[in-house]
Design a protein around this nucleic acid. Sequence first.
DNA 1: ATCTAAACGAGACGGTACGTCAAGTCTTTCC
DNA 2: GGAAAGACTTGACGTACCGTCTCGTTTAGAT
Lengths: 198, 198, 198, 198
Amino acid sequence: MGEAAARGRKSIGAKRNPESADAIIEAAEGVLREAGYAGFSIEAVARRARAGKPTIYRWWPSKAALLIEVYQRQKRVETPDTGNIEDDLAGFLKNLFAHWRDTPSGNIFRSLIAEAQSDGTAAAALAEYSKGRRGHTGRMIERAKARGEVAADVDAGIVADLIASYAWRHLLTDRLDEDDAMIRAAVRYVVRGIAPTP
Amino acid sequence: MGEAAARGRKSIGAKRNPESADAIIEAAEGVLREAGYAGFSIEAVARRARAGKPTIYRWWPSKAALLIEVYQRQKRVETPDTGNIEDDLAGFLKNLFAHWRDTPSGNIFRSLIAEAQSDGTAAAALAEYSKGRRGHTGRMIERAKARGEVAADVDAGIVADLIASYAWRHLLTDRLDEDDAMIRAAVRYVVRGIAPTP
Amino acid sequence: MGEAAARGRKSIGAKRNPESADAIIEAAEGVLREAGYAGFSIEAVARRARAGKPTIYRWWPSKAALLIEVYQRQKRVETPDTGNIEDDLAGFLKNLFAHWRDTPSGNIFRSLIAEAQSDGTAAAALAEYSKGRRGHTGRMIERAKARGEVAADVDAGIVADLIASYAWRHLLTDRLDEDDAMIRAAVRYVVRGIAPTP
Amino acid sequence: MGEAAARGRKSIGAKRNPESADAIIEAAEGVLREAGYAGFSIEAVARRARAGKPTIYRWWPSKAALLIEVYQRQKRVETPDTGNIEDDLAGFLKNLFAHWRDTPSGNIFRSLIAEAQSDGTAAAALAEYSKGRRGHTGRMIERAKARGEVAADVDAGIVADLIASYAWRHLLTDRLDEDDAMIRAAVRYVVRGIAPTP
DNA sequence: ATCTAAACGAGACGGTACGTCAAGTCTTTCC
DNA sequence: GGAAAGACTTGACGTACCGTCTCGTTTAGAT
């Protein structure tokens, strides 16, 4: 019944068809945007992409892998560099919340975390991704350390962990429209706690 | 044809049979313990409980509802009261991590969070539950405030949020065997940040 | 919780309540009329009759038994006595087809036959009922025999069988709107076949 | 997870697997033979065929469709041609009764008739099939007409109808072990009735 | 007049089957 | 020879009924 398949794409041949891959990613994103994680199935993505399921499985070994790829195609959130660690972190969280709230990214990331709870590969991918992000946030702390805003013996990883945890929990409990003042207060508590003792 | 039914339970009468409910809850807990969230299905629970699926659906309209009930049957974690806020919080987190690690609670709660990402009722239940827990942790802060360990203008809810977020993220990323020193460091950063300015 | 029970019926006491029985029969008839055999379930009848399922099972041990009772409550079809066997039989079939076509009887009887294919009690009940009917039609033949219209050595039971079979098959294949001439032709072939040889 | 699939069948590939289809048909036949119409469920057929329910539903949209296919796979009953219409018809009925009695065909056909009472597609299929059979029996009559055994103005369809009806009713009321003399008597009444008037 | 037993409505119970959706694997077809 | 896509098995979904059993109430008939 392939007669009605993938109209518009040309090759179904021996070479990987980049149009198919794109169509799949786009379809996945579309499904997540329109039906959310609950409606996100390989079946649905294949349908929307006018692709066969095995085509998806060939390139992404699991639902989680596809989810990760879709997430990584999203635009990154900006990390400000104001010269002040409290402003940096508060700005970063504000941007992140807005990004998660206003693009499919939030839904995708939530889905990925959920998937990781029952799928080992998703968990691994998420761990890998988180490590990278922790390093990223860690650098903000290190910069501040260099400026003397943060005590030298502070573990930047732990601080990054605290900040990321705060963000995750707000994402997972649907509190991304949190008051700016509240975000700033949370950041301030941590920043004060890691300031050098005078 | 019910001749093979649930030998050992006596009444299957017109009133809700508490033995059936218990058997279902216990089965659900058992499935979660042994097969995790991935293996947690209404079918599996019904099979293990020697109950009919409709009996489960009659009382718990969704997987989430059953999950919530199972979670609420779990023992609570102890919150120490040492007279020192850092010890209190670090001890609480240590206890919580151990509880999540060594009992089915951790699996159940992870599952509940995951379920909440695609099921509204689970999300609502989780929000309700979290509010209660936040109050609980908040009281630890208020006690410290009364002792003068914490500045008067600190928002206890935000601090509780930070601590809970840290715990959640460790649960969700399978890092419950975290070094005690690391937990203590994280707690210390926050506790210092909310101490009264001298 | 009987407080909301079957408003309008008075007694639910120690004697069988004929109002309940009536309500059940009527409900059964109503369900058959409105939803057909496909929708005919004890559950549905109980619902419509505002009766408990056990009340139905107490008095009618099976769906088939209820079906039979419902059928027997229907008005009987008239068997003409014109003094001519061909007119008698053709008239009887005409009346029977009209009766089956224009009242719920047809649906009920079809259901009963269908039920008898998978339910022994229905089969037995149907056999019992058929025997009675065969005797009934047989008497028409015997009268004709007495009048000399039918050969003395003809087995009235077999003739009744042929006539009933013809009726059943038209019911079961939804051909109750058969042309009168056709019915008469079928009857004539048989009547001629059993006439005394001159 | 298909590792435990249908051991013994090889292909589960891109083309419809005829072995699966066969296995399903055979299983359906087996279930009908051993458990009768009462035990005939898609579930049971799938179990016996070691096939998935969706595989059955993909190819047969309903129980009726499967039933029809199973029936059509059955061997046809022989129609004798003795040069005498009474012997032809009595022989045909005798063969038919034996066939229905001694092979699954009888059970299958009964089931199909029963199913047709609540399922439109089964009814349509049955009507279609019956038309074919009526033609078949009709030809026996036409042959006799050509031989002068049957009056020229006799409607062969009606006669075929009478004969088929007699067979159906005996099938449906479980009287397939009817005395040969009885069958012959019934046939004789009809045959005499359609003989040319001398 | 009181007690008892039967019948009632309601509905929970363990089950079976329904028809559907999705997951992930295998195989054929086509470039 | 390798990518695409369809057919496959498996398993879970949530629903409808099945026939049995228990509940608490109501009432007729026996004591």
